[in-house]
Amino acid sequence: MPHVIAASGLSLSFGGVKAVDDMSIQLRRGEFLGLIGPNGAGKTTLFNMLAGTYKADAGCILINGVDASRGRASARIGMGLGRTFQIPRPFPHMTVIENVLTGAQNQAAETILANFLRIGKVAAQERAAIDKAKGILNFLKLDHLMHEPARVLSGGQRKLLELARVLMADPSVILLDEPAAGVNPALLGFIIDRVRDLNARGTSILLIEHNMDMVARLCHRVVVMVGGRYLTEGSPQAVAANPAVIHAYLGVAAQ
């Protein structure tokens, strides 16, 4: 089972617009894969299909070898797939640590009865989750904000918070949608650092990113999408030098 994600022939239309058209993508175990393309290329839509948020009109998705083409979005994290959103979606009125605790999986106390019948187990699980959440917040330098409501976080901190929530579930693969967009340079370096660290520890990562410097520093391989379709792939350097890719970016920019 060399692929953590193997998607083929994915298509999705919104009304008459084909946002993604017969797109295939494979993510190898342990790989750091970049997904680039001009705005509107369909990258986020592809993510949303992989994450189960949108049902594909056609195509097939395998996650860790299991067919997920028809699966529910809420079942994805149990299959090992976590994702962040292009525009961060914190739970604004919950504290930062409560946000992160929400990412914990298989908590007995998420059923009503266990809260009354298995108090000991619930307490032990919750304490373990809190320890883990604190460790993750520490790793992402959010620990000093632990008890603040998430709405006070800056844009970059919100991206980190989303990552923290996902890490709580120990995913084997993470989809990152533009984690660097709108993030100040100091924080950007830190995010790059931490994401690389995660990959080095064995998490496979699929990254949508416009910042080619970041892509070059992180990605083993880059897939290029244009107009909802697969264009080409290769090493970051090869893709950046590919005339077809340059044309695609400039062509869209010139429209």
Partner: peptide, 13 residues
């Protein structure tokens, strides 16, 4: 607060 985010974290809304 955010159904889509909760769903992505495995919660069946």
């Amino acid at each position: 607060e955010d159904e889509q985010a909760a769903t992505a974290l495995g919660k069946n809304a």
